[in-house]
Every structure is written in structure tokens, then in C-alpha cells.
Design a binder for these strands. Structure first.
Lengths: 362, 362
DNA sequence: GTGAAAGCGCTAACAT
DNA sequence: ATGTTAGCGCTTTCAC
């Protein structure tokens, strides 16, 4: 066995296939084949290569590999508003699925939807990622074109567009669940705390919500709608909820039930109510959307999105599409579920309900 | 201006510097120089190159770049227990700082400390990352050697080791703050809800905690210590806290104050108390550590770690070290802060305290 | 089954 | 200031 060749450098930093090849007495092609599970290699050669590689602590160089293969070994996730606990669970699902694949996960987070475009460009950089997951981002023309112009597989999470794979929750149905529940508790003067009006999920929830109210025969006056004033996080923030509730209370003619388009908003609203000295659910019923971890502790009634599954499925879909880029876009829609807690019904009732419908720990 | 050369492929997929060079009538070296901000290029050439690159939608290929430069364009963060809300805030700080740099962020999460080693290997793969951030991971010999053997810059977050840069909170001091506060509320029969005994942060908090009790002259009998039974998440979980509190109550001789080594544990403990029909703070005082977002809503007294700053500083430190790998390891220790809420003192008092010491929104 | 050789797209040292 | 050229470490034909 001859000594390591002239290519030898820092033994820890740069063991290359050349080093392995010369130490194992084979060509670099054989080494490469061994590391790519190529079938046409003799057992003898394979064993020899593996032994040497092990001894020298060889690791393939990821950039060299992806350059030669013309395929990146990471996927990118573009996530606006990581502050929203919603994304934490989704991210977990994503992580878990990706850990099983050959891909690593690049995370780009954005505080506003404008920042999303910047991060999207970073994520779509040539050779950067084998695929991109785009979270909760309305795909107006410019952005859709940008995504369409790339040959990279794209999967939309929590938003929908005909040209791309998507995984989302049935937000319209979620809105219906909320409306039905509030009506069932006896509420008649309702209010809707909206996120930014551009937000597709929020609009969908609104649609389902108002649809049920219409069907129930409530007139237009019985629903008040308050929009988030702050564009930050697209209105999905405690501050936005707090502020919206303040304005709602200030306007007089207090509603008896409020549906916020997200839990974070609802929590802000809850604080505004506490500050105003109002009790929940006695003075006002309140519910949110998402079922983030916090909501269980606070006892907030909400519509649960299967967040972890959302992340896992999205990752699954992306991996599938990377392997087969030419399939038709598929759209997966998950069902939301009502979770009744103490902010809409008397707590003793809520407790017994909770016992029947235990909180899922995903 | 001649047409694109034979190297021309998919106009969207693979515009290379060769395409730009021939279209702009310069050499590839000049194109490269323009894109690397090299000073010695004429304005004319620069403008011409930029114009063409813009028109053709050129983007440098990241893998090719990092291969040629011998430097990756991403940094990796290895994060155990992403479920713990603690990490969410740290991650935000990280993200914000990294967005300002040339580096993108690769996230590796692990559910247990064993998984950390697997993810660490992925993160340390040759050519993968320009640097690695390792979160909350005890660096026993094997792991420290593994990290020492790589030439990649490593920054420890929430743990300390002489060989590496680190950014952490003064956990011993945090433990002291907790003990002093509980003593001040009049508590005399104390209990400590520990995470896994291997956890360095938890041990440090314990050390500070017991130190103050000793100084105050409490005998050994007045402190009961319960360890997390479940190794998952290293004991930093609601389930662990719930279980530990159950065992504590079951053992009889109820303590009048409990310090949990993390907020998530404290929340679990809180549930166990509620289930047992015990009130807080009347029947028992309870406090945690971290000050995750949830704690404010629940009204949990706790010791706040500056999580966002932890993330930001760690990122800062890593970027610095990548630029200058030979500097001495630096250790930054941030100060924790007591945050008094309703689980240790009567709520009206807590409210007035809160007014004086408003919750920081980082 | 194996090796030689031609790239992958870029950077950087060396010329001029 | 600009071009030529030799890599970076790997994959992948194409011969044999």
C-alpha cells in the first residue's frame, strides 16, 4: 500500500476520493461508485475502499457533490412570522420528515410579507436548494411568476395556487366551525377580528364564518368586522389582536362573541378584555384559530389546524416532487377541528368537554 | 454582440459566467471579479457585465462558488428539543443576525441528546457549513473531541467548554435569584424540580439555588429534589414536570414552594397541582426558568433568560470567528432577571409588581 | 468490474 | 485592468 499522494493535505480537513483511491489501490471512479451504492463494484473493492475510508475518516464534500450531480442536497423553507407559534409546530413536522431524507433544511424567516420576497430570492438562488417550501404567502401575479420561472420544485404550505403543489387546512370549513359553535353558545351579536385583509387564510375563515351567519338568518348588522391595523406579521400578532379589541370596545355596542382569525390575535384580545375589566366568557365569548400550544394553557376555545401534519405532509410532497418533477400539482387539504375550552362556555362545561375530547399531543 | 455560445443551455436554469462573459465581450475572470466586488475592474466593464447579467437573469451557482472558495455559504445550528419554546426565541435572534450576513441558516433539530450526535455529524459534514452553532448540549469527552477534530468554527449556546466560543446565561445566578425570591415570599419547605441530572444548565441552577438556601441556614431536610424520570427532551418537558410534581405530592409532606428548572416543567407541574385541586400560590408557590412566551400569559413567576439576545450574540460570535479562526475562545455570559408573577405571590401584588417591571418585548 | 478523462461553475494565482 | 489557466472534489460517460 503506497503512501498518500501529493494531494494529501490536512488529514482532518481534506481527505478526498483521491486519497482513498491511492490508499486503496483503486481509481477514484471506483471510490465514487462505492459511495453512491453503484451495483457494479466487486465486493473486494468495496470492502477495501470502505476500510480505508473509515480509517482516514473520509467524508464526501457536499458542495462538490451537488455541483457534479447538478442537484442540491438541501431544501429551503421560507417562513414568514416565525414568531407565530403556529410555525413552530409546522417546522417540527418538517424537520422530522426531512431528517429521514437525504436533504437538510435551510430556514429563511421573514418578519413581513415584503421580506418574504427577499428571502425567496435567497432560497431560489441557483444551485442552492433542490426544492422550496413556501409558507403562508399569498401568491399574487409577480410572486407566482417568480416561482414559476424557476425549475425548482415548489410546495406551498398554508396557501393554494393551481400551478404548485400545496398542503393546507380547510380554512373555510374552519370558519364555519367557529360560527356554528358561537351560535350554539347563544351568541347573536358577533364580531370578527381579521388579520390583514390580503391574508388568504384569514379571508377564507371569514368566508366560512359569514356564510354560516347568513344561513342562520342573521342580518348584516349583527356582524362587526375589525381589521388588523398593523401590517407587521400580516396582522397575526398579539399586538394586532389587542389593538383590534380595544377599537372594538371603544366603538360601543359590545358584541357578545368574537372570533379572531388566529390564536395569537385572540390572546392579544384577551388581554385587552382583561384590561377593560371584562370577563370571559361571561361578558364576551372569544375564540381563535390554530390551537397553538399556548391556547391549551390559557383555555382558549379555538379551531385546531393539524400543524405538525401540515409540515410533515409538505415535506413528503416536496421530496416526492423532487424525485418526479413532471407530475401534476397535487393539493392536499386537511380538516380543522373545533376545540372547546373555557373562553366560550362556562368552564365547568368546558372541563367536561375537554375530558371527552382530550387534547392531541402530536 | 454575439449570440450565446455553445455552453448555452436552459436559459432559466443555467446561465453561467461563460454566457455572461461572451455576451459582454469580456473574460470569465472579469465577470467573476464584478460579482465579487473586486476593486480592479473598469466601470465600463462592470456596467456592461451587470447589464448583461441582469438581462439574462444570471445568478451565481452557490455550490460551485463554495467549492472554489473552499468556504461554505451556510452555517448550521444544531438544536435539541425544538419543542421547547425557549429555542424559538433563540432561533429568532439567530435568524435576524444571519439575515444580515452572507450566510444562510441550516437547522438541525434533535429530539434527544443522542440524536444530537447524529445531527452534529450531518452538520459537520465536509464542505457543508462554514461554522456550527451547538445548542444546549453537554460536551462530554467524546463530543468535545469530535468538535475539536473539525476545523470548523464552533460556537456553543447555552453551554460552556474552555475550547470553544460560548454564549450562555449565568444559570448559577439564576438559581440564586429563584431561591432568594422564594425565601422572601416566606417559603421554608422547598422543592426543586430538576431536569435530567446530566443537564449542565439545570445543575448550575440547582447549585445557585442550594447555595442560597445553605447561606440562609436552612438544613438539608428543608429541600426536596425530584428528578425528571423521562430522558426525552432531557427532562425539559411538560410531561416531565407533571410527573415530577405528581411524585412530589404523592410522597406527602407537601413543600410550600417549588422551583422548576424550566418553564415547560413548571407548566406541567401547574397542571398536576390543578388536577390535585391545589391552588397557586396559596397552597404552594411555583416558579420556573426561561420566561417563554407562555409564562406571561399563564402568569408564571420565572427567571428570565435573554433568549433573543442569546441567539443574536451567538450568531455574531460565529460570524466573527469565521472571519478570524485563530482568536482565543471567548465566553459571553448574560445575566438572568427575576420576573415576578402570580404563581409565587398574591395576584394583586403581582399585578402591581408587573406594572413597575413591564415585560420586555424583544 | 474498472479506469481514464471530461466536465459541473466558479475562484484565484499568475501573466500581461 | 484584463485574460489565461489551473484547480476545488466529485460524478459520469465511455472505453476496455
Amino acid at each position: 500500500m503506497q503512501a498518500l499522494s501529493g494531494r494529501f493535505r490536512n488529514p482532518l480537513l481534506g481527505v478526498t476520493i483521491y486519497d482513498i483511491a491511492s490508499a486503496a489501490g483503486v481509481s477514484i471512479a471506483t471510490v465514487s461508485r462505492v459511495f453512491n451504492g453503484h451495483p457494479r463494484v466487486s465486493c473486494a473493492a468495496r470492502d477495501q475502499v470502505m476500510e480505508v475510508a473509515d480509517r482516514l475518516g473520509y467524508q464526501p464534500h457536499v458542495s462538490a457533490r451537488s455541483l457534479a450531480r447538478r442537484r442540491a442536497n438541501v431544501v429551503a423553507a421560507v417562513i414568514p412570522m416565525l414568531t407565530n407559534l403556529f410555525f413552530v409546530d409546522v417546522l417540527r413536522g418538517l424537520q422530522d420528515r426531512m431528517a429521514e431524507s437525504e436533504f437538510d433544511l435551510l430556514v429563511f424567516s421573514a418578519r413581513t410579507l415584503d421580506e418574504v420576497d427577499v428571502q425567496l430570492d435567497r432560497a431560489l438562488a441557483r444551485g442552492r436548494a433542490a426544492g422550496v417550501l413556501v409558507f403562508s404567502t399569498p401568491l399574487a401575479d409577480a410572486r407566482a411568476r417568480r416561482l414559476g420561472h424557476t425549475s425548482q420544485p415548489v410546495v406551498l404550505v398554508d396557501s393554494v395556487h393551481p400551478d404548485f403543489d400545496s398542503v393546507s387546512t380547510d380554512n373555510v370549513e374552519g370558519g364555519r366551525l367557529a360560527a356554528r359553535h358561537l351560535l350554539e353558545t347563544g351568541a347573536r351579536r358577533l364580531a370578527l377580528l381579521m388579520a390583514h385583509p390580503d391574508s388568504i387564510p384569514a379571508s377564507d375563515r371569514k368566508q366560512g364564518f359569514t356564510e354560516v351567519l347568513d344561513t342562520a338568518g342573521l342580518d348584516a348588522d349583527s356582524l362587526r368586522i375589525v381589521h388588523a391595523s398593523d401590517p407587521l406579521h400580516h396582522g397575526y400578532s398579539e399586538a394586532a389582536g389587542y389593538d383590534a379589541m380595544k377599537r372594538l370596545l371603544h366603538a360601543g355596542d359590545r358584541p357578545d362573541a368574537v372570533f379572531a382569525t388566529s390564536d395569537v390575535q385572540a390572546l392579544g384580545a384577551l388581554e385587552a378584555l382583561a384590561t377593560a375589566g371584562l370577563g370571559v366568557p361571561d361578558d364576551m365569548r372569544l375564540m381563535g384559530f390554530d390551537d397553538i400550544m399556548l391556547s391549551r394553557h390559557v383555555g382558549l376555545t379555538t379551531v385546531r389546524q393539524p400543524m405538525y401534519e401540515l409540515g410533515r405532509l409538505a415535506a413528503e410532497r416536496l421530496v416526492t416532487r423532487i424525485d418526479d418533477p413532471d407530475r401534476e400539482p397535487a393539493h392536499t387539504v386537511l380538516s380543522p377541528r373545533l376545540v372547546v375550552r373555557g373562553t366560550t362556555v362556562d368552564t365547568t362545561v368546558a372541563r367536561s368537554l375537554r375530558r371527552i375530547q382530550p387534547v392531541a399531543v402530536s
